[in-house]
Design a protein around this nucleic acid. Sequence first.
DNA 1: AACATTTACACAATCGTTTGTTTAAATTCA
DNA 2: TGAATTTAAACAAACGATTGTGTAAATGTT
Lengths: 334, 334
Amino acid sequence: MAERLGVSPSTISRALQNHPSIGKKRTAEVHKLAKKLGYYPNSVASNLRRNRTNLIGVIIPRIDRYFQSSAIAGIEEVASKAGYYVIIFQSNNSYEREKENARMLLSSQADGVIACLAMETDNYDHLAVFKDNNVPLVFFDRVCDEIETHKVIIDDFGAAMKATEHLISIGCKRIAHIAGNQKVAIFRDRLRGYQEALRKHQLEQSEKLIYYTEDLSRMEGEQAVAHFLESDAALDGIFCSNDTSAISAIQTITKQGKKVPEDIAVVGFSNTPTSLIVSPALTTIDDHAFEMGQAAARLLIRQIDEKQETVASETITIRNDLVVRESTMKIQSN
Amino acid sequence: MAERLGVSPSTISRALQNHPSIGKKRTAEVHKLAKKLGYYPNSVASNLRRNRTNLIGVIIPRIDRYFQSSAIAGIEEVASKAGYYVIIFQSNNSYEREKENARMLLSSQADGVIACLAMETDNYDHLAVFKDNNVPLVFFDRVCDEIETHKVIIDDFGAAMKATEHLISIGCKRIAHIAGNQKVAIFRDRLRGYQEALRKHQLEQSEKLIYYTEDLSRMEGEQAVAHFLESDAALDGIFCSNDTSAISAIQTITKQGKKVPEDIAVVGFSNTPTSLIVSPALTTIDDHAFEMGQAAARLLIRQIDEKQETVASETITIRNDLVVRESTMKIQSN
DNA sequence: AACATTTACACAATCGTTTGTTTAAATTCA
DNA sequence: TGAATTTAAACAAACGATTGTGTAAATGTT
């Protein structure tokens, strides 16, 4: 400690934060010495005393997915501006790891937590603990209804409906769906949105037109298309629950000698950078991952700053946009 | 604290870490109560006392770039297995932010730091501070020679040479290069590798065949191709310093009515997922970002665990592979 | 039974800040 | 000039865990 210049630690502490009860001469003196000595306050000690860490814990499935890393970028931007640090835990979509992550986070005394649930997770006690310990908790994207807390989501149902109706509007009659893991709410919602659009426009619905995947991988996109083409589905449009499967679908369709969008139009979901690169460029839903992260961080920080939680829970729905590209630009045929 | 059951805090502490000098009856008792009470040790207090945080600080330009987020995933994997947390700071390629990040990191008493330099950075005092304070420091990818510390890199020169020689091997005679920001060593090395390959095979070198970009963006890739086509360069191959510009180049070339690879073959750098999606699929250098992250984390943790630094510095070079895809698969014409 | 040894725990200092309370010195006011 | 007020800094108690040392009780030894 820097009281080698004959003053008490309390004086140092107050001087460094420009407390009024310290003379300006002293204050300047302390600041100068701190600079000269290369003094950095030990924030561990400070955190202990203040009972505050300025740490935001983030639990996400995988950081190397575009959606997630964008969301984190959004979180980090808001957090660092507000003086918070971001500490990241990956669940790898494993329930056990998520539990472990939560334990560590609780130990590390984070001021707040932002979480996007793992696919496996269907018990939420490990997250409810945060509420019990008065640690603000914000979910984003993959939320859970069992815990009453703050959430940032998009309207997956509406977006899926919008995407499907877009396919209908360009003349598709037999529209298939590549569905995500039905254990996850957002993928259930997208399926429902798809179904509702068909129903609304009195198009045929059939289980044959739905392909259920485990995790919407490239391979599954390929399998889905193979399945559809082998069956007698005679489809002319596909709405895919993510971009990866959609792109894989486009490539597979093309490889099979069919044309996108003339024979089969394709819509994806998320507007990852890849959707611009595939040819034909992919029509998709922009879910504004970065903005979701920002909103989650802002919401969380507000909770942290309010000593008493006034609102028990708040759900923010981020806008989503249909981005129309070549994969659905076919000449109207009506 | 959980000494509501009549024992001293020291007993609790030792019981929880199964210290031999505590009776097994007591130990079990304490563990049971801890579970019942939902007790989580306050790691801030523990850190203060132990003078150790189990925190690894990571400073990177941007987390939402595939290379970076993959590297972080690698870091996180190794770190979490070894009981470390990862705290992330983004510099946004700004020197000032990087300085700020380093300050915060020093304050937060991280046990070690992994850094990938910002583009702007050309003064390294803010990072040398870690060495001064005995905090192990590992650079990866964008390293600096001014600080003697541990580094994880790839052989950019060799990889660029390999990529260029590959173009030569398929018959290209006039090979251009889309160069990255020359303030950054890796991009200088890639340029040198390109030049060396040309020299070795006695192909024409010309400044007209090199297009210097600011940050290898899509737009700059487009501009580069436009520039090359407008000039009388008559090129038949391009080696690009990253995948983004390479993909943009492919798309621009195609749009101009030329064929890839028949008219112009293209090679990129990094093997991002997008290189598989563009058509024709991109030949590129796989730089194993995930493995770089792993290696950096392992190296760092070893430094942390060794009380005394025996080796002053160690540089690990990760292997790199040329991944040949359609963008260079042209029929040999010799 | 008397002593030595082991076992199981309590005591108390400590990590580096922060912060409420005191105290001493400097200033203001009557 | 003496009392009241303001200013500037020191004192000391936290924050919650860790850990070296001390000390009773339990066990073992002859």
